[in-house]
Amino acid sequence: MAIILSDSDLDCGTTMQIAIEAIEEAMAARSAGALVSPPRHSVSFGCKGDLVFTVGGTIGEDPIAGFRVYGTFKGLRREQIVAVWSTETAELQGLVIGSRLGDIRTGAIGAIAIRHMSSPDARTAGVIGSGQQARTQLEAAALVRRLDRVRVYSRHEQNRRTFSAEMEQRLGIPVEPVASPRRAVSEADIVICATTSRTPVMEAAWLKPGVHINTVGPKTVDEHELGLDVAAAAHLIATDSLEQTQAYKAPFFLSESSDAARMVDLAAIVGGRLPARQARDQTTLFCSVGLAGTEVLASKLLAATGGKAPAG
C-alpha cells in the first residue's frame, strides 16, 4: 500500500536533512548517467493557467519512476502531487500532497550546490528575500555549512524582521535584518537570492572575493533577479539542469551572453568530474532551475522514513 504524506508530515526537524541526502543521491545518479530527468512539460488551460509536469526517476539498482504535477492557477493553496512507483514491481510506493515538498526540494538542491561549490570554511551568509524559498534555502544551507552569522534584506522592513526572528530561533544563530541589499551581501561567504524581482537586486561590485551565490528567483532574459555582471564575475557557473535552461518558454537570462557557454552541470561537480574552485578567492554561481527526478527521489526517501530520520 502506498504511503501518503501531507504538509504536516513534512514539518518535523529532520525533513530537510532527509531531502538533502536524497538530492545528493540524485546528483550522484545523474553524474553516473542513471537519473532520468527530462525538462518539465506544461499543459495550458487558457487564461486560467497551466498544469506543469516533471517526470523522472532512476535506472539501475532499486529503480523508481514518478512525476510531480502542480498548477499555475490563481489561488492561495498552490498544492501539488508527487507520485512514486517501483519499476520492478509496478507498485505505487508513495504520494506526497501539498505545497511544502517543492520548497524543501529546492532548498535541498541549493544546499548541495553550497556543499560542493562554496568554500569549506564559509561561515557567513547574506540573504536577499524573506519568503518561503528564502527560509528553506537558509535552513538547508545551515545544515551543510557551520554558519555563525546571517544578514537578510527584503523590501519590506516588517517582513525581514519577521524572517530574522523566526530563522534565528529555528537555526540557533544570529540573523540580522539590514536596510540595504549591499549590507546583506558585502561581507557574506554565501549569498542566497530568493526573490520575485524582475530586475537585478545586487551588483557584482558589492561581493567579496571567494563568495558563492545561489539564485532561486526569476532567470529569463526579460526578468532576472541577478544581473549579467554577477555571472561575468563568477569563475564557475553551474546549474542543476542544462536541459531545463534551454527548454523555458522565455530564454534563460544568460542565453544571449558569452557566459552561457561556460555553464556546467552541478552533477559533474558532485560526481568529482569537475572541480568547483581551485583558489580561495574564486567566485562561484549556482542557478537553480529544478532538476526533474529530484522530487521523486526525495519523496521516496521521505515516504520510507515517514519524514523522520532513521534512528541511529
Score class of each variant (00 low, 15 high):
E139Y: 14
A140H: 02
Q93M: 12
I109A: 14
G49L: 01
Q137W: 02
C12I: 13
G98C: 06
V144D: 06
Q137E: 10
T87Q: 10
D50M: 07
A19R: 02
A29T: 01
E91L: 12
V52N: 00
T72R: 01
G129C: 09
G60S: 00
G129L: 06
E91H: 11
L147Y: 06
R145D: 04
A134E: 05
A90L: 12
T58G: 04
V36Y: 07
L143M: 13
D121P: 13
R145N: 10
A83G: 11
E21F: 04
D7G: 11
L35D: 06
R78P: 04
I23D: 00
F73Y: 07
S118E: 07
G131Y: 10
L147Q: 08
G56C: 00
G60V: 00
F67C: 11
A26Y: 09
Q137G: 04
V55R: 00
S86H: 04
G94R: 01
R123D: 10
G129I: 06
F73E: 08
A142D: 07
E79V: 14
A125R: 07
G126P: 12
Q80F: 12
F45L: 13
P63N: 04
G49H: 01
Q133M: 12
G129A: 08
L147H: 06
A125T: 06
R100W: 09
S118A: 15
S119G: 15
A134Y: 03
E24L: 10
D9C: 11
G49K: 00
I81D: 07
I112D: 05
V144Y: 08
T72C: 01
A141T: 09
D103L: 13
R30E: 14
R78F: 09
Q137S: 01
I104Q: 03
A26C: 05
V36S: 09
I112L: 15
Q17T: 13
A32Y: 03
G57H: 01
D7R: 04
G57Q: 07
I104P: 00
Q137N: 07
S8W: 04
E24M: 06
L51R: 06
I97H: 15
G131I: 05
A19V: 10
R68F: 00
A34C: 13
D148P: 03
G131T: 09
S42L: 08
L76A: 15
P38M: 01
D11N: 15
T124M: 10
A19N: 05
G75Y: 04
D7W: 08
G75V: 06
D103N: 15
A134M: 03
L95M: 04
G13M: 13
A141D: 09
G60D: 01
L143K: 11
P39I: 02
T72E: 02
E21V: 05
